[in-house]
Write a protein that binds this DNA or RNA. Structure first.
Length: 873
RNA sequence: GACUCCGUAGCUCAGCGGGAGAGCACUUGCUUGACAGGCAAGGGGUCGGUGGUUCGAAUCCACUCGGAGUCACCA
């Protein structure tokens, strides 16, 4: 093994070994409990970003952990066809070639998209490989697979038959760029600096005019009324009268409607039922005409008269100019307001009258909300996101699911060529020549909503996978898609499986750049996860992602942190190198922990137990950060800094029995530690595990460590603590008086009692190795030399006669400070214990702890005080 | 307008009812037989503010200041 950890070397070929060994495949093993996770299917539009890397790393940790715990784990991979996004990419590619999708025709175009899909799918699989994800490729799915498409049709038809899907003419969000309808959540509202245009519409009877204001003046071409509040005294006399709409010269009526806010603007509102959702409602109440004034591409249509053919924004400019000249438009105010933009294309979304398909959300949402009051509820982690979810569900509106695209699931509805009758079914009507299928496809999220069960074989209810692996156990995703996906999976699963789709949903945040900004193409601040893997290895990236923040919080990307994680990996690498170098070809069968153990042995085994307990507990709670920190501290601060150093004594000594036990413990502890670290850092742990004496083919299927109560030894722990305290205090003094470790000095240790003295005698070899004394005296009574540095630890005092090096005044000053420290501690504890309420109310063990601390502090204070007296006399 | 999150060491973040922690940065020393990307020792914080609950608050509650976000409304 090289002395420097080289991730590329370590990761090379490892994934193939895992995949070929089928370690990641669900075993359908009835003797084990199943544990299922379905991957949030990435879009086949492009490459994975750090957000994906984070999301999948968390899932990999969960599934590797459960697999090691003996579950029959299924982690199902797959991808999403991502309707608008993918189609847009392919259309952009065509545009470069000077073509568009209509040149190709539907069939040819879709063939091209499939080519694109295949290309990116293999790219994504390559990235999953680089990240080391333990996916079961034998069960990989794609949202447009036959089975999943079958599920989509089944759901559509069933909901239609239950009146939960309907077709109708409503105001929807229209994206004139991609020329498709969008659902409410695909619209992003952005604050923009716009204008408020004030206009006067003349009354037909010539008795004056009525003032209205709008932010979208071009829509006036489609106005079919002006509305005022029925109680508004200013306008009482005008209700029912007609105004002449400028430009078009159409007569429109002044109507009264409660919707109008008297306080806002002039209190009169122009009504454009075909271009505004509120106006649409008002139009329905007053039976108003709906005049559409735009084409689907955002240009003005024939109803816009002389503006026909102009783009909507160009029309706005020209119209404003014309209206100003006519004196209709008399004021333009600056106005800050939010305007909807297409999530995909960025185009300003047009509220647009259109015939579309909708999911009636009321009953579905109610069932999903009610589910949360049952034992079958979805457990959100962190739980605050349940509130986010419920808030949204409670205020949900019907879901527009048809999209004017070609790439996606074609809506299973046919229209009779002559009668116009609608037929909805999984297959085309038999007399197919008389029918035309709906041209549109379904919202991508319509199919993703079925993902947890459609991937497992539904609607075939006898499917084995479905029966064994559904409901799934955990879903991991970012808070940004709770509405898009999580909530929709819940209500669809409730509707079709009558169960929750997953027990737990682990919500994480967003990856941001070092300054806390979102990573975006326009800012150019994105980091490619593959670059990180290239430079520092997948293990470093994964450990950073898993431990860099707490559940639900965002995560800032810092190269320095990745580097720090690499250092950790390098530390592990070298510790393992040390262990391996000292094993002398020890075989797995030769590992033997039954021999007599040193304090260090007993201590490290005790700490290992505690670490197993903590790490397991934290992973169970999805607290990967805490789990990682326990491992980090155990490996670096305890195993490397102390145990390995202490193990060098027996290893370099000639007690063969002790040597064998030490080697066994090194192997055992390292093995157990590598297992716990494996879900976080799969590559390096597998590499090390393979080098260690081991049993089994791969650490991926090794058993998760369990606490061994026989190994916990508190007495050894306190003996160890005393040794560490003494060693530290001596190092401390050496540093204080600039006496390097290489220089031998005399050491006197005064033990508080004979027990302690015997313990220290037994372990004096450690003190000799770590402190380098010229002479080491351990006794309960010692003659304290006049000129000496001293330290007080729990159970003992340390004296280092350092004549010539010691500055009495400085030493007195130092001791004075120490005395102050102990004194304030004593006072604090005394005050606490003097408080009757504390003694009465606090738990007994806490009170007892305080009493013991108090004794210890008093003892230390007294010893420091005595030392001060000696020096000052 | 409703809701949520964050404010802890110079920086990035843990901890979330019983004595302030980590990584990086900083200071000093070290050719210690795994690692100088290392080892050893150290400096550094009235845990945003004010009240309250409690024997005890960084941790729970209320208010408040500052930052971020989600949803709704926006003629």
């Amino acid at each position: 093994m090289p002395s420097k950890y080289d991730p590329n070397e370590v990761e090379q070929g490892r994934y193939d070994y895992w995949v070929n060994g089928k370690f990641f495949e669900a075993k359908d093993d009835e003797s084990k409990d199943p544990f299922t996770v379905v991957i949030p299917p990435p879009n086949v539009t492009g490459k994975l970003h750090l957000g994906h890397a984070w999301d999948t790393t968390l899932q990999d940790i969960i599934t590797r952990y459960k697999r090691m715990q003996g579950y029959d784990v299924l982690w199902l991979p797959g991808m999403d066809h991502a309707g608008i996004a993918t189609q847009a990419k392919v259309e952009a590619k065509l545009k470069e070639e000077g073509k568009n999708r209509y040149d190709l025709g539907r069939e040819k175009f879709i063939e091209q998209v499939w080519d694109w899909k295949e290309e990116y799918a293999s790219f994504i699989r390559k990235q999953w490989e680089k990240l080391g994800l333990g996916l079961d490729y034998s069960k990989e799915r794609f949202t447009l697979d036959d089975g999943l498409s079958d599920a989509v049709r089944e759901v559509f038809v069933t909901l239609y038959e239950k009146d939960l899907i309907y077709r109708g003419q409503y105001i929807i969000n229209w994206d004139p760029d991609t020329q498709t309808a969008l659902s409410d959540i695909e619209v992003i509202y952005k604050e923009v600096q716009g204008a408020f245009y004030h206009m006067k519409y003349p009354l037909k009877d010539g008795s004056g005019h009525i003032e209205i204001a709008t932010t979208r003046p071009e829509t006036m071409l489609g106005d079919t009324a002006v509305a005022v509040h029925p109680d508004d005294e200013r306008y009482q006399h005008l209700i029912g009268k007609k105004v002449i709409l400028p430009i078009t010269e159409r007569e429109i009526e002044i109507v009264a409607d409660d919707y109008v806010d008297m306080e806002f603007g002039s209190g009169a509102v122009k009504i454009t039922p075909a271009h505004d959702p509120n106006d649409f409602e008002i139009g329905n109440r007053h039976d108003l005409e709906r005049i559409l004034i735009m084409n689907e591409d955002g240009s003005m249509n024939e109803n816009a008269m002389k503006y026909q053919g102009m783009d909507r924004f160009e029309c706005r400019k020209q119209l404003v100019k014309d209206l100003q000249e006519e004196g209709v438009l008399f004021k333009i105010e600056e106005h800050h307001h939010s305007v909807g933009h297409s999530e995909r294309s960025g185009a300003v979304v047009e509220p647009y009258l259109s015939t579309q398909w909708f999911v009636k959300m009321g009953p579905l949402a109610k069932a999903a909300i009610d589910l949360q009051n049952t034992d079958d509820k979805v457990n959100f982690v962190p739980d605050r996101f349940e509130k986010t979810y419920l808030n949204w569900m409670e205020n949900i509106r019907d879901w527009c699911i048809s999209r004017q695209l070609w790439w996606g699931h074609r809506i299973p509805a046919w229209y009779h060529k002559e009668t116009g009758e609608i037929y909805v079914g999984k297959e085309a009507p038999e007399d197919t020549e008389n029918w035309e299928q709906d041209e549109d496809v379904l919202d991508t999220w319509f199919s993703s909503a079925l993902w947890p069960f459609s991937t497992l074989g539904w609607p075939d209810e006898n499917n084995q996978d479905l029966n064994r692996y559904f409901p799934t156990d955990a879903l991991v995703t970012g808070y940004d898609i709770i509405f898009f996906w999580v909530s929709r999976m819940i209500f669809q699963s409730k509707q079709f499986m009558n169960r929750r789709p997953f027990k737990d949903v682990l919500i994480h945040g967003l990856v941001r750049d070092a300054e806390g900004r979102k990573m975006s193409k326009s800012l150019g601040n994105g980091v490619d996860p593959m670059d990180v893997v290239e430079k520092y290895g997948a293990d470093s990236l994964r450990y950073f992602l898993a431990t860099g923040s707490s559940p639900g919080q965002d995560l800032r990307f810092h190269w320095e942190k990745i580097e720090a994680t690499w250092n950790f990996a390098n530390k592990i690498w070298n510790a393992s190198r040390f262990v391996l170098m000292n094993l002398d070809d020890m075989k797995y069968e030769e590992v033997d922990l039954s021999g007599e153990k040193s304090v260090a042995d007993q201590w490290i085994l005790t700490r290992l137990n505690e670490t197993i307990q903590q790490v397991t507990r934290h992973i169970d709670k999805y607290d990967f950060g805490e789990a990682g920190r326990h491992l980090y501290n155990f490996i670096w601060d305890e195993f490397c800094d102390w145990y390995i150093e202490m193990a060098k004594l027996p290893l370099y000594g000639d007690d063969e029995q002790a040597k064998h036990t030490t080697k066994s413990i090194l192997v055992y502890v390292l093995d157990q530690t590598m297992r716990m670290l494996h879900p976080f850092m799969p590559f390096i742990t597998e590499e090390i595990w393979q080098h260690l004496p081991h049993d089994g083919e791969s650490i991926t299927v090794a058993e998760w460590p369990e606490v061994n109560p026989g190994f916990t030894n508190q007495k050894a722990s306190s003996e160890m603590k005393l040794l560490v305290d003494i060693i530290r205090s001596i190092r401390n003094i050496r540093a204080e008086v600039n006496t390097p470790m290489s220089k031998e000095i005399q050491m006197l240790i005064k033990a508080n009692d004979t027990n302690i003295q015997e313990g220290l005698q037994k372990n004096r070899h450690y003190l000799e190795r770590f402190c380098n004394p010229s002479e080491l005296t351990i006794d309960t009574a010692i003659d304290v030399p006049e000129k000496a540095m001293s330290a007080v630890v729990t159970g003992a005092e340390v004296y280092l006669p350092l004549e010539g090096l010691i500055n009495i005044e400085e030493e007195i000053e130092r001791l004075q400070k120490e005395w102050n420290k102990w004194n304030s501690e004593v006072e604090r504890v005394e005050k606490k214990l003097a408080n009757e309420k504390f003694v009465q109310n606090a738990p007994a063990d806490i009170v007892e702890q305080e009493r013991e601390k108090g004794k210890d502090y008093e003892d230390k204070r007294e010893k420091v005080e005595q030392r001060l007296k000696d020096l000052q006399s």
